[in-house]
Amino acid sequence: MRGRFISLEGGEGAGKSTQVRALAAALEGRGIPVRVTREPGGSEGAEAIRNLLMQGAVTRWSPHAEALLFAAARADHVEKLIQPAIGAGTWVICDRFVDSSRAYQGAAGGIDDAALIALHAFGARGLLPDRTFVLEVPVEQGRARAEGRDGAAADRFAARDHGFHADVAAAFRAYAAQEPDRIRLIDAAADREAVTAALLAGLTDLLP
């Protein structure tokens, strides 16, 4: 039986990494094999590209260059890890996927959404998650969480201004409105256990 592919999306400090681990543990507790991964990254080639993308000055790459690098990393990630895992019956939970490219390089970076979708169709064969959860927190709350977590070590994306992150948040809400069957909004300002419970409730129709 084919595994399921789940992605968690959201702005900075939304708690994606925490909830990826919590959701994986909850599914494993139900006897479901799970592989946790992240973007950019997940495969050897994609992790090498991650270092290029996340480090350096905010202006190191243009949105177009970022989009190409993310697409290259994602193509390798899908081919080397995601497709083999779901083909073997494992559930894959990914911290970010293509909807982040659409929000960050697209809506906030100025690249046409259709161009990013076409790039994804070529690089990753158009693979989409079976379910995508967008963890929502107010932008300022998320930035405060991220600053408390990272301090002076903020990456190129966390370091961007309020307007950029507000555009990202608005984009995720728009995608959820456009694709309600795939993309679900989750109130991530609630306590951790409540967020995990909401994620599990959002998978009821996919659980064996």
Rank of each mutant, 00 (worst) to 15 (best):
R145S: 14
F97I: 11
D150H: 15
Q83N: 03
A108H: 08
H120Y: 01
R143N: 02
L119I: 13
G109C: 07
V78S: 02
D155N: 12
R102I: 13
V98M: 14
L135K: 12
A144V: 11
H162Y: 11
I117L: 14
E147H: 14
E79H: 11
G151F: 08
G142Y: 04
R160Y: 04
G126M: 04
A103G: 06
E79M: 03
F122D: 01
A114H: 12
G110L: 12
R143I: 14
D130N: 10
E140P: 04
E147M: 14
L128S: 06
G89L: 09
F97T: 07
I117W: 13
G109H: 02
D161R: 09
A124G: 08
T90G: 03
G110W: 12
R131H: 05
L127G: 00
F157P: 00
T132G: 00
G89N: 10
D161T: 00
V139C: 04
A107M: 11
L116P: 01
G123T: 15
V137L: 13
P84Q: 12
Q141A: 14
K80D: 11
V78M: 03
A103D: 06
H77Q: 03
D99S: 10
R156M: 02
R96G: 09
I82T: 04
V78C: 02
A153I: 03
G151S: 06
R160D: 02
F133V: 04
V78D: 04
P138L: 06
F133E: 09
A115Q: 13
D155C: 06
R149I: 07
A85P: 01
G151M: 12
I86D: 01
A153W: 01
A121I: 00
S101V: 08
I111G: 04
G89K: 06
A158T: 10
I111A: 09
A118V: 00
A153K: 14
